[in-house]
Each structure stands twice: as structure tokens, then as C-alpha cells.
Amino acid sequence: MEVRIQDAVEYISANLDASVAAVAREFAVPRGRLRRRLAGTGPKTGHSPTHTKLSAPEEVALCRYIDRLDGINLAVRPAFVTDNWTSRFIKRYGYRKQWQRKLNANRQKAEQPAVVAEYFNKLLAVLGDNGVDPEDIWPE
């Protein structure tokens, strides 16, 4: 569409007596849009949207947050980042909304901070009893 509009603008520039309506019909472009281009108004493509709630750095930070939660298999619920703009944001960045399966009891228990802390305390005790230095296991 934009290429046809540019062609029409060039045609009118070369033929100053040409009717804008006739040129718009000939190039199959909207007459109002052609008039705006002739008046110097540029296309909307490339302009940042004015109805966004977040700035560009805030959107980047939110994407990183969502990716981090997704990376550790936590469901990203709209309630985590909600407002009335959530659906448009999800669509704009290509995220998918999907239902999260309920965790089975063992996994749900395993993700509780107290259980995780208890596991690592037991692990440290076993490592200490067997003389294994933690630096030998987890590289930095």
C-alpha cells in the first residue's frame, strides 16, 4: 500500500494539474491518505504506540521477568502482571496463555521453601560426613 501511495505522490509531483481523487482511484489508494502524504504527514508505521501503559524499558523488564518465571517452570498468570493491558501485551510479544496443570502432591511439597532448605541441610551434612568439599561439586 505504501509503495502505491509513494508512486501516486511522485505522479502528482510530476503532473501538478492531476486531480488527487483521480490519481487515488488510478493507484488504488485511499484519497484521504494520499492527501495527508501530499500535506507532509508521514505513515504511522515505525511510530511507537501512544496508548501503551509501560515504557520500552519497563516492557523489556517485564519480558525478562516472564521469561525467568517460564524458565523455572512457574506459570505466569495474568494476575502476576495484570491490568487491562495484559491481553494486548501478551499478544504483542507472542506469549501464549495456557492452563497450568495442577501439581501433584509430591512436586507441590518439593517446591515448598522449608522442604528445599531441609534437603540442602541434609545434603551438606552428608557431604561433611564423607569429607566432600562443596567447591568440588558446584563449579563457579
Rank of each mutant, 00 (worst) to 15 (best):
F120R: 05
G32F: 01
R107A: 11
R96Y: 10
A18N: 02
P134V: 04
F80H: 11
M1D: 14
A75N: 08
Y93V: 01
A79P: 10
K53I: 14
F27A: 00
D129V: 05
R4P: 05
A21I: 08
S13A: 14
L54D: 03
H47G: 04
K109I: 02
A114S: 13
C63D: 04
K122P: 10
M1W: 12
V3D: 13
R25Q: 05
N84W: 11
R101T: 15
W85S: 14
V3G: 12
V9A: 01
L124I: 04
V126I: 13
V115L: 06
E140A: 10
Y93I: 02
T41H: 09
K122A: 13
A125L: 03
A79R: 12
L62F: 03
C63G: 02
D70N: 04
V20L: 08
T41E: 10
T86C: 11
D83E: 01
V115D: 07
L124R: 07
A21V: 08
A114D: 14
I66M: 13
L69G: 05
L74R: 06
I12D: 04
L54T: 02
A21P: 04
T82N: 11
N104S: 06
P139R: 05
E135D: 13
G71W: 00
D7G: 06
W138M: 13
I137H: 05
L69W: 07
G46N: 04
R33W: 07
V23D: 01
Q108Y: 08
L124M: 07
F89S: 00
G131R: 03
R92K: 15
W99I: 15
D83Y: 01
R92G: 07
V81N: 04
T86D: 08
E135H: 08
E58P: 00
S55I: 09
L123V: 15
A114Q: 13
R96D: 15
Y11Q: 03
R36W: 10
P134Y: 01
R25K: 09
L103R: 09
W99H: 11
R101Q: 15
Y93P: 11
E26F: 07
K122C: 12
S19T: 03
A117Q: 13
A117V: 11
N73K: 09
K102A: 14
V29M: 05
P30F: 00
C63K: 04
R36K: 11
D136R: 02
S19F: 02
I72A: 10
A114F: 09
R33K: 09
V9R: 00
D129A: 15
F89A: 00
P49N: 10
A18F: 01
F89G: 00
A79L: 12
A56Y: 09
R35G: 08
A14V: 12
M1H: 14
L34R: 00
A61P: 01
T50S: 10
T45D: 12
E59L: 00
D70E: 05
G71Y: 00
K44N: 14
A39S: 12
V132I: 15
V9H: 00
A105V: 15
E26M: 09
E135M: 12
N84L: 11
D67G: 02
I5N: 08
P30G: 02
K102F: 13
R31G: 05
Y95N: 03
S48N: 05
L38W: 01
L74D: 07
M1V: 03
N121F: 11
